[in-house]
Amino acid sequence: MPSSTRDASVAFHTQHFLNWLTFTNVKVINGAKAHAIGTSKVLQNALFAKLGLDFPKAIALYKIEDVEVAVDKIGFPVIVKPNVGGSGSDIVKYKTQASLNKDIAQGNLTLGVDSTGLAQEFIESDGYVYRVEILGDELFYSIRQKMIASQFNYCAADGCSVDIDEDESEFEFCAEDDSSTIKLFDVSNDILQDVKNIVKSAEAEVGGVEFFINIKTGAPCYYDFNPYSNFVSNGNALLGFSAEQRLLTI
């Protein structure tokens, strides 16, 4: 939901409204709990841990200076990102203590709309981001997209672009700008079950989970649950079908 192009505080307005709907006994698909988890990397990590899944080690923090404390536990490279994220906004990778110190000293590091964030270990992947979308308790579709070298923030679903520091960024990506990098893929039964468990545990009835393959283990490393990402823009061109129309025909 939040991204560099929109006011991230709308996530809190949404959370209050969904809580209010729950309080008034309105049936909500992807309600308050799904939204809360979808907008909190901390809760997503807790969910992955509860389900026994692999995910990047991450230290939650409030003050920028506590990044230093977290780095003592994580080491370098380290990724620093807001807890209330979206489309990869404000995610920065630091390869060295010097580059981290420089950004802290110059006030270039931000933890997002509520000043909470995480310092997260960087895991080498096979170069792809995988996303599996679930509708109800069934596979909706599964896609993979190639990471773009030297870029960091990306949004496969809406083609958002994010202005960031090229020196520290890794994966900026715009699906609509480069449809050749997004493809359908056949998800394994084991991963599909993992994703179903994540979506169900988040009390979502429609949602997507992103992971990459840890090249050291060859296993999926989960890093994002998203209750909003199903409807890839220009799906006919990117996927060969309209996710919106598929929703209505399932």
Binding site: V10, D158, F231, S233, S242, E244, L248
Partner: peptide
Amino acid sequence: FLYEHPTWSNQLIQCFRDNGLNITLINIA
């Protein structure tokens, strides 16, 4: 239908309309 996203929402809303679904739209923003 609670929506916010400027791109995803328009297509889905149009799809609802094309399929004759009467949806109350709520732009959360």
